[in-house]
């Protein structure tokens, strides 16, 4: 019984933790891209990287206040959306998919390269020996919780983790409200019509390119926000955190929760991290395998669950099956 409790506690701890909130934000952005507009962005992690580094470099290297850093993070995400969208959004959907995944990887390699080291800290990231003093000064000063440990029932938080968690989920709620308001509006209706058939939208007088660009920018900014929260929560960033798999985790979350649903990415993120952590804890407790193989095994297990979900509930947890089957 103790083992099961430990597994559940570990799972819940992750499901409500800051990482789940960070992934929920990234997946909410992907939902605007893929779920509502039909844009295949396979480089969401690139937007996260630019958000995180845009903020961190501005604050730690150029010693600007945090709010300037946040603006810089958003500006960097918008710039990436414009750079990716301008040449590809007039073309078929697959061009965007290819460019985004390539751009995200190029960014990671550029940020870890030697010439970039004075700004990015190279492979070691920020803060580092060559980088500035760090970027969490204001963030920590804003934390209303005095240092210490906080116990909520069977869960336990440090004061920094509690702060990141609260801000993270508050941002998630705000973004959910924004996405809900946008998608019930005529603007959201145009996005959905583009997803269904962009020529039909064009024939009805909608400037499809402009709407796609707006969607790409909005979803990219949510990716940037997610990256900033990631950086602040762990007080450090390194380029190799921004591997392509982060995008694929976000897609897994979106599809598990239900694409084109308002709450899908949030439910998906909590479930995804619950599964990852509880499976990991279960494998540790039962001592079935050497510790080095636990990481890959838990991912394989989540992969298996995803396959089963796709077989039995392809619309995701919150999706509408009837709608899903209408793919014409």
């Amino acid at each position: 019984m103790d083992a099961i409790t430990a597994i559940l506690v570990s799972g819940i701890n992750s499901a409500i933790g800051p990482t789940a909130a960070i992934y929920a934000l990234a997946a909410l952005g992907l939902n605007v891209h893929y779920g509502y507009t039909g844009l295949l962005n396979f480089g969401q992690v690139g937007f996260m990287l630019l958000g995180a580094y845009g903020m961190a470099i501005t604050v730690s290297i150029y010693e600007q206040p945090l709010w300037v850093g946040v603006l810089a993070g958003f500006a960097a995400s918008i710039a990436l959306a414009l750079a990716l969208g301008a040449p590809t959004l007039r073309l078929r959907a697959d061009y965007l998919a290819i460019s985004t995944i390539a751009a995200a990887e190029i960014l990671r390699f550029v940020f870890r390269s030697a010439p970039a080291t004075p700004f990015t800290g190279g492979p070691f990231g920020i803060p580092s020996q060559v980088g500035g003093s760090g970027f969490t000064g204001t963030w920590n000063a804003l934390n209303p919780f005095p240092p210490g440990r906080y116990n909520l029932g069977f869960l336990s938080f440090t004061h920094t983790r509690l702060w990141t968690t609260l801000v993270g989920w508050a941002l998630v709620l705000l973004v959910v409200a924004l996405v809900w308001a946008l998608m019930r509006s005529p603007w959201g209706r145009v996005l959905k019509s583009i997803r269904e058939d962009e020529d039909a939208a064009r024939a009805l007088g909608k400037n499809v390119f402009a709407y796609k660009m707006q969607a790409l920018i909005l979803g990219g900014m949510l990716g940037g926000l997610s990256g900033m929260l990631l950086a602040l929560g762990q007080a450090a960033i390194a380029p190799d955190q921004f591997l392509p798999q982060v995008t694929f985790f976000a897609y897994t979350i979106l599809i598990m929760g239900g694409a084109a649903t308002v709450w899908g990415p949030v439910v998906g993120a909590a479930l995804f991290w619950f599964l990852l952590s509880s499976v990991e804890r279960g494998l540790i407790i039962t001592d079935m395998m050497p510790s080095g193989t636990i990481g890959p095994t838990r991912l394989a297990f989540v992969g298996l669950l995803l396959v089963l979900l796709m077989a039995f509930r392809p619309q995701g947890l919150l999706g509408n099956k009837q709608e899903m089957m209408l793919d014409a």
Partner: peptide, 20 residues
């Protein structure tokens, strides 16, 4: 537009919508 309702299809056609 298959995954929009008939009414949503219709409303999409209207021009110069502020909400767009």
């Amino acid at each position: 537009l298959t995954r929009l309702t008939v009414m949503e299809n219709m409303k999409l056609g209207a021009r110069e919508q502020r909400g767009e």
